[in-house]
């Protein structure tokens, strides 16, 4: 495994697009949360502090900051998705996926290391979110707290799922443009539309259980919680969502491994 990782590291170390996208991702996470924070400060200035605090709470103070940063950063998971699609479709474009097998990897080794990349990218994303939450929390005026840290754990599951789905698009579609286009179309439009419709028309809200929707449901909208709770029905309980997420991740991995094992490369 170590040898295989060393080879993968060689492929990526000198790949500029990887570092640019990763840097962009880190900056975007801090930037997006900063934007939301300043929006809240502005909103509170308009409504008056007492009213503002009552409606919006203190989303960037401990302990809510774990939830808030995890929620907003979830919208940026298309970036590590983009990274993994690029890494995978590069192999198809350069036909190095063939060469790696010819040179002596098994097909399973080749695909397994890409799944390890999904894990690594999800881990990096989670670390960035963790650090960003600490940063914003430290700038707030509540004492440090690990309460609600579980949201960062949910973010990790969400990141794993998004990046795995991105890799799935890359492996099945093989072409960078097509994979990126359809991945974005799915996470931005198709997923939300179908989930919304299903939630509207079915009493048990099965829209929450669609691929990736199930991960979104893990981290609900962090503001004006009482109003949101009153307006919408509670999303399903967390253990069902977590279990479902794990089942989906296993399913994605199984499809990817099987596709790559059976195909003519």
């Amino acid at each position: 495994m170590q040898k295989i990782l060393a080879v993968e590291w060689l492929k990526i170390r000198f790949y500029k697009a990887f570092w640019i996208l990763l840097g962009l991702f880190v900056v975007s996470i801090v930037g997006l949360n900063y934007l939301v924070d300043s929006f809240i400060v502005k909103a509170k200035a308009q409504t008056g502090k007492a009213n503002g605090d009552a409606i919006l709470g203190h989303p960037f103070n401990y302990p809510d900051v774990w939830h808030t940063v995890s929620f907003w950063s979830g919208f940026l998971l298309f970036l590590p998705g983009l990274i993994i699609i690029t890494l995978m479709t590069n192999e198809f474009t350069y036909r190095t996926h063939r060469q790696n097998i010819i040179d002596g990897w098994t097909r399973l080794q080749f695909i397994a290391i890409k799944l390890v990349w999904v894990f690594i990218l999800a881990l990096i994303s989670t670390i960035v979110v963790f650090a960003t939450a600490i940063l914003f929390g430290a700038l707030g005026d509540s004492p440090f707290s690990f309460l609600k840290l579980e949201y960062v754990g949910y973010f990790f599951i969400e990141a794993l799922s998004y990046i795995a789905v991105a890799l799935l698009f890359g492996i099945v579609l093989k072409r960078a443009g097509l994979a990126i286009g359809l991945f974005f179309l799915y996470i931005l439009i198709i997923k939300n539309t179908i989930s919304g419709l299903l939630n509207y028309f079915t009493p048990v809200k099965i829209g929450h259980y669609l691929p990736l929707s199930i991960n979104d449901a893990l981290i609900p909208f962090p503001f004006i919680k009482d109003m949101v709770k009153a307006m919408t029905q509670q999303p399903p309980n967390v253990s069902i969502l977590l279990g479902g997420s794990v089942v989906y991740i296993c399913l994605y991995s199984w499809i990817m491994i099987r596709t790559f094992q059976k195909a003519d490369l």
């Binding site: 060393a6 080879v7 060689l10 492929k11 500029k16 036909r95 190095t96 790696n100 040179d103």
Partner: peptide
């Protein structure tokens, strides 16, 4: 096999390092 398959952005020696690593 068929066409030379290498990572376009890597140098000749780094590409060979990858081949050697796999072998």
């Amino acid at each position: 096999l068929e066409t030379p398959n290498f990572y376009h952005y890597l140098s000749a020696s780094k590409n060979l390092k990858i081949s050697a690593g796999i072998k």
